[in-house]
Design a protein around this nucleic acid. Structure first.
Lengths: 111, 111
DNA sequence: TGTATATATTCGTTCATGCGCATATAGGAA
DNA sequence: TTCCTATATGCGCATGAACGAATATATACA
């Protein structure tokens, strides 16, 4: 039997993990890093957003342990820590897609 | 090739989906509903939180399409829409757990 | 040392979120 | 109708997140 406070803390950790995923820019970053590791400048070009914005989002992902860095000179390359995060997002995507198509077909039946 | 704006919108939808998961109370609710469907009063008792708090969190989950309701008289029972959401959270949990144990063993090596 | 490039951080503002509390609504029974 | 229970919503406040713009830090090189 698990301590109630511990359970609460785990749930909080999990929520923080999900909070890192609750921003479209960060989701884009994670999927991009799943294709291949990228440095900040490359990510900035890919997303066409200001560099400080990218750096701030990367900080969030770093602090939550979703990405890790590797420095080569002045260039810092970001890597995805765990592929399961992408798998989880794909699952959510498929659930979301089904819900949307279901709603769409409902609209079609009405029309 | 997918329209860039459409891609952006899908990413936003996905982020909203994740935002629904970025609160410990809502995660608790989802796992509870995965065990069995519950009405608001039962959830209020399970979580030991004020009823308005529960109702507001349920509203978020409803609007994001994660739960659906069924009314029997004055009682409204909440159901989980898609089990894949739980599967996704379990994946995130396992990734999180591995990261924590890895960090813990690192601490042990230092000590 | 100085300069250039890559990345990170600070500040101020704006906007969203969560909560406590009170209140409103909906349905059933008398 | 009135009353009771179940659920939802409005309000006000405090907290937190995101962003633009400017600035700071770190590394390499001359």
């Amino acid at each position: 039997m698990v301590n109630q406070t511990l359970k609460q803390e785990i749930m909080q950790l999990e929520a923080d993990f999900c909070a890192a995923l609750s921003d479209p820019t960060r989701i884009f970053i994670l999927y991009a890093l799943n294709e291949r590791s990228l440095n900040v400048t490359e990510l900035t070009n890919e997303l066409a957003l200001p560099q400080p914005t990218i750096s701030r989002h990367l900080k969030v992902l770093r602090e939550r342990g979703l990405v890790f860095t590797e420095r080569q000179g002045t260039v810092i390359t970001y890597h995805l820590v765990d592929q399961r995060v992408i798998q989880a997002m794909d699952l959510l995507r498929s659930a979301m897609r089904d819900r949307l198509t279901q709603r769409a077909s409902l609209v079609n039946e009405l029309g």
